[in-house]
Design a protein around this nucleic acid. Sequence first.
RNA 1: GGGCCGUUAGCUCAGCUGGUAGAGCAGGGGACUCUUAAUCCCAAGGUCGAAGGUUCGAAUCCUUCACGGCCCA
Length: 463
Amino acid sequence: MPEPEPERTAPKRFPDRDEIAAVRAEAEPLEAGAEGGSTVRVAGRAMARRAMGKLVFLDVVDRSGRIQAICDVAVTGELDVRLGDVVGVVGRPAKSRRGEPSVLAASVEVLARTTQPLPDTFHGLTDVELRYRKRYLDLLMNEETRETFLARARVISAIRRALDEDGFVEVETPVLQPRYGGAFARPFVTHHNELGADLYLRIATELYLKRLIVGGLERVYEIGKDFRNEGVSFKHNPEFTMLEWYEAYADYRDTMARIEGLVERVAREVLGTTVVTFRGNQLDLAGPWERIRFVEALERHELWTRDAGELRAWLTERGVDTEADRDWTQLVDHAFSHYVEPGLIQPTIVHDYPVELSPFARPTDDDPTLTERFEYFAGGMELGNAFTEINEAAMQQARFEQQSEQVEGERGDPDYVEALSYGMPPTGGLGFGIDRFVMLLTGKESIRDVVLFPALRALPGAG
RNA sequence: GGGCCGUUAGCUCAGCUGGUAGAGCAGGGGACUCUUAAUCCCAAGGUCGAAGGUUCGAAUCCUUCACGGCCCA
């Protein structure tokens, strides 16, 4: 380690700091030109400086807000502050002669230097690539970005609070899995040297969480990252945040009610309303949501058939390229995501999916070719997926076998089937895409605007 | 994977039909005791995304590549 230059030994702490928003509130009721009696200590970035010779106005910004410090250099000494420096100001709440809430500074110290010029303080940082690659600058320069990520944090803590109150236990299951499953997706593969085995980054938490239901935990949830080695788009990031919960003694109808209640509650807690604007549409997240059967949703577009050839012909007729779709399940998925999903603007529950698409869902009572599965949508995006879980080992084994005949079917997991053979209570389970939910609540149209460090290609020459 | 658009100073942007690079902010120096995109003066700041090509001459035209955005698959 190189010796620090003595002139750079800045203070290591700034204790008893007051939030700028609180100081502002204290200054607000004062008369223009007056100062309050208390002493306050604020700290943050110097984001603007208006130097009038012996009098310097510094705008100091912290997480809570912005306030100007009025610095009479006869009191504070010469200021050596660059825009972007982190400063600590001690003074009194005051109002300038023009009525601006301020801190009348008794002392100003530089707590950390910037050695790089800050981006344009008027225009902010607008280059989207730079905003993603250097998110710290985006957060520094753009208040809206700060608000978005603070909202995201409130969403996640509100979800935890709601589930905790409802008797769910938060658990952590493996990210590195010897077998991947619980979704249709290509995994990331890695290798454990000591075990001498390839491992997969999980694409879902599903199969581990249900083992915990077998184990008697009754209500479990996990909020964490899943990883899918697939395309990147406005609604796809290779790692994304997923909530999954499993509830013993519940079916998919109970689960519908629970997710409607959760979404409504979180929206109210975070935004104070259930009405949001997304991609130019106003939507109301309050339940009950619209419900439509899967088959009916496709029938409305005259796209329901169980015949792969017929479906392919219909799609081709409409100019859809089906070359990559190698069997009926892929064709029907293509038809649904192309024609049905984008139109599901208001929150909508699509339910009773064909058995071929639903390897973990129990059949419906009146039609064994359909399952008690639903997906729910809003703003034209899928938010999540849920079902009445198969809780019988033999049925699960049969589904795995059926799936293995499909092009991209679920791979079997004998260890999971064995767990079920010890008996799993009837269970309702659900997955919920947190990033997309945050997009809806904040009105951000790209997942990259709600993920702090979205996946980007490496720049040439970068490690 | 395909189409379109973009990439010029740390940031935000000009730069015309090809003639050799500009502004504002930030940073440096100076003036100024109530400003708030403060103002004023001075100086400095560039491998024009990269590599080729055309040309007497390329930020500008052509090709390829990289990165990003939007749309499509």
